[in-house]
């Protein structure tokens, strides 16, 4: 549901002129509000962020850097990058296709479709993982298919069995679960943006003789590129940071099916706090980068509005 509420800033209103007004809260109220708000932010946001870096560096820079020499840590980083590298582009293409048909056309069942796209936000990450176990696990449809005596497509069963193609407790499951939890991000960002922009520019391009693809690449895409970028960075942050769903399908095989957040859990449970926080610090840096890029896009959108 994250994107549901992060949408409005791109529409870009300049903030209402503040502070110069005569009609406003008395000074003591303003001071009280500021204090409460800033303490809340400090306690819940600044402090945890600081804790990650401080704990990671607790035993010095050497110990911190040593954490990344661990081959399991490196393989976790690789797997996280791989999962994001598949899930983000897949959801990007989906987001563009979904927003094109929803924003540019009228058809029956459109509002149902929009609600269905939001579904993954409403599902607990743990359940997101579970449903893939139910489909692809040894007890699931796929597993039973591999063991079935009389499959509908015997050649497919043989082909899959011969390659020992596993999905659950293997990389494909992690990629699928990641794709599921990040599914709505890009679409959620683009649908309202494209609806707000309307279709006049596309119609204008058509009357000028542009083909469908020319219209999309030269008119639509440049107009939505910042919204697209915004959706992609949020999608990527979630893809790299997902824990619950991936935890269910991963099987926690060190060096094979561990992503960075799962690796953090293992290190933490082994009381290897410095290493756990060191890997966490990479994820925290990614989060900071995400926030920075997000603010940058919002700032641009406000400026051009």
């Amino acid at each position: 549901m994250a994107a549901l509420v992060t949408t409005p800033p791109l529409a870009g209103q300049p903030p209402a002129a503040a502070g110069r007004r005569v009609v406003r809260n008395p000074a003591w109220v303003r001071v009280l509000f500021m204090t409460v708000a800033l303490l809340f932010v400090a306690g819940f946001l600044v402090l945890p962020l600081a804790a990650v870096f401080a704990e990671a560096l607790r035993k010095g820079l050497g110990a911190y850097l040593d954490s990344f020499r661990d081959p399991d840590a490196l393989s976790a980083i690789r797997l996280t990058l791989l999962a994001a590298a598949v899930a983000v582009p897949a959801n990007l293409v989906f987001g563009v296709a979904a927003s094109w048909c929803i924003a540019k056309f009228d058809f029956r069942g459109k509002s149902v479709l929009i609600t269905l796209i939001d579904l993954p936000f409403a599902v607990s990450p743990v359940i997101s993982g579970l449903i893939y176990v139910l489909v692809f696990g040894a007890q699931g449809w796929y597993g039973q298919y591999l063991d079935a005596a009389d499959p509908a497509l015997p050649w497919l069963q043989q082909w899959l069995a011969a390659r020992d193609f596993k999905i659950i407790f293997a990389v494909p499951g992690i990629v699928l679960a990641t794709t599921f939890v990040t599914f709505p991000f890009v679409a959620r960002e683009l649908i309202p943006l494209m609806q707000q922009q309307g279709s006049d520019e596309e119609y204008a391009a058509l009357t000028l003789g542009a083909s469908g693809w020319q219209t999309f690449w030269r008119i639509t895409l440049p107009n939505i590129k910042w919204g697209l970028f915004y959706g992609v960075i949020l999608c990527n942050a979630r893809a790299m940071g997902e824990f619950g769903a991936v935890s269910v399908v991963s099987g926690h095989i060190r060096g094979e099916t561990n992503t960075m957040p799962l690796h953090v859990e293992i290190l933490y449970n082994e009381y290897n706090f410095v290493a756990a926080f060191a890997v966490s610090s990479l994820l925290a840096l990614l989060a900071l980068l995400t926030l920075f890029l997000k603010s940058l896009v919002e700032w641009r959108a406000r400026k051009s509005a």
Partner: peptide, 24 residues
């Protein structure tokens, strides 16, 4: 900065948030 930080819980992996809150 405060405005940008508000989104931290969206961007910070939940596992990291969990161990950071525990450390505090």
């Amino acid at each position: 900065i405060v405005d940008a930080l508000v989104d931290l819980p969206f961007a910070l992996p939940t596992a990291v948030a969990g161990i950071a809150l525990t450390a505090i």
